[in-house]
Simulated assay, not measured.
Amino acid sequence: MKNTTELVNILTLEDQGDNNFSGISKDIGSPNVFGGQVLAQSLNAAYRTVNSKRILHSLHSYFLEPGNLELPIVYNVQTIRDGGSFSTRRVTAHQGEKTIFILACSFHKKEEGYEHQMPVKKEIKQPEDLLSWTDMLDQFGDFLPKKMKAFLSIERPIEFKPVQVVNPFDKKDLPPVVDVWFKLKGDRSNLNLAQKQQILTYISDYNILTACLYPNASKAHFGNTQMASLDHSMWFYRDFDFNDWMLFSIESPNSYGARGFACGNIYTREGKLVASVAQEGLMRPPRKK
């Protein structure tokens, strides 16, 4: 995938009737289906069963089995409740006889109410002053570890610019914090709110577990640690657009028992809080022989 149009095409499922929807997968550099893709496709399925005036406000999900990149994924949507203000859906993702993912999500009619939000970090570096993943590959590709170079070489519909650039050869522990700017590639002008939320959910599965690795970076990295998303939750607040860079500000309060927990907020460039994310992931160190 190289741009927004191709991403939207992947996230838009085929309606098979009886609240069943089918989708295909794209490789992003990992051996299994990318969790963000399954999340976003599940939302696409759920949105297709909900009144168009209701807006997604939260989701909670579990990754049960690794997804096979070569097999289609079938999403079944169950209508749990359609109340006066809220609609709730359960989505189950299958490959053959195997259930690989489950999601519960809630939609809310538009209402007015009180407002506040946590402010964006002050004096954070702006994207114009930072290197993107593409820039890093171009400038340092010959010196990067093989797995990192291969990962950065995959074409993506999103450009990422991390605020904290870490030298992979500098073996030292770091604070459990990751701030990364991101921006969609290609035409972003005709996206509706449902599509924007699906794309934001897709993006939210990138970078988040990195914050869990940093406090043990002197010995742990993606090349020697078995990592996988276990669960993922999001809360959506305000409408937004993808015409400018957005900031995903992440921190990890805890890692323990071969699991790491991270949470973060997603802001527009102007500092408007759009969504919050929480995820726990597997972080299994090399087994002792």
Rank of each mutant, 00 (worst) to 15 (best):
M1L: 11
K2W: 08
T4A: 05
E6K: 14
L7K: 12
Q16S: 11
D18N: 14
N20V: 07
F21P: 05
K26F: 06
K26H: 13
G29H: 10
P31H: 12
Q37W: 04
V38D: 00
A40Q: 03
Q41I: 03
L43V: 04
N44F: 06
A46N: 08
R54F: 15
R54E: 02
I55L: 10
S58K: 03
H60W: 03
L64V: 13
G67T: 01
L69K: 12
V74M: 06
V77P: 03
Q78A: 11
I80S: 05
D82A: 07
G83T: 11
G84R: 15
G84C: 03
G84N: 13
S87T: 14
T88Q: 14
R89C: 01
R90Y: 11
R90F: 09
V91I: 13
A93H: 06
H94R: 12
H94Y: 13
E97D: 10
K98N: 08
I100F: 05
F101V: 07
I102C: 07
F107K: 04
E111M: 07
E111N: 07
E111L: 09
E112A: 08
G113E: 05
Y114I: 09
E115D: 12
E115G: 08
M118L: 14
M118C: 07
M118Y: 15
P119S: 05
K121N: 14
D129V: 05
L130I: 06
M136A: 03
L137V: 05
D138I: 01
D142A: 10
L144P: 09
L144V: 09
L144M: 15
K146T: 12
K147C: 03
A150T: 10
F151G: 00
S153P: 12
I154N: 08
E155Q: 13
P157A: 04
E159Q: 11
F160I: 02
V163Q: 10
V165I: 14
N167D: 15
P168S: 00
P168E: 00
D170Y: 13
L174I: 13
P176F: 05
V177Y: 14
D179C: 02
K183V: 03
L184T: 06
D187V: 03
R188K: 13
N190M: 08
N192E: 00
N192D: 11
Q197T: 09
Q198S: 15
Q198P: 10
D205C: 09
N207V: 05
N216V: 10
A217C: 07
S218L: 08
A220P: 01
F222A: 06
F222L: 09
T225M: 15
A228R: 04
S233T: 03
W235M: 03
F240R: 03
F240L: 00
F240G: 00
N243P: 02
N243G: 08
N243I: 00
D244L: 02
D244T: 09
W245Y: 15
L247I: 12
L247Y: 13
F248A: 01
S249P: 07
E251V: 00
P253G: 00
N265A: 11
Y267I: 01
T268V: 06
T268S: 15
E270S: 15
E270H: 12
G271T: 04
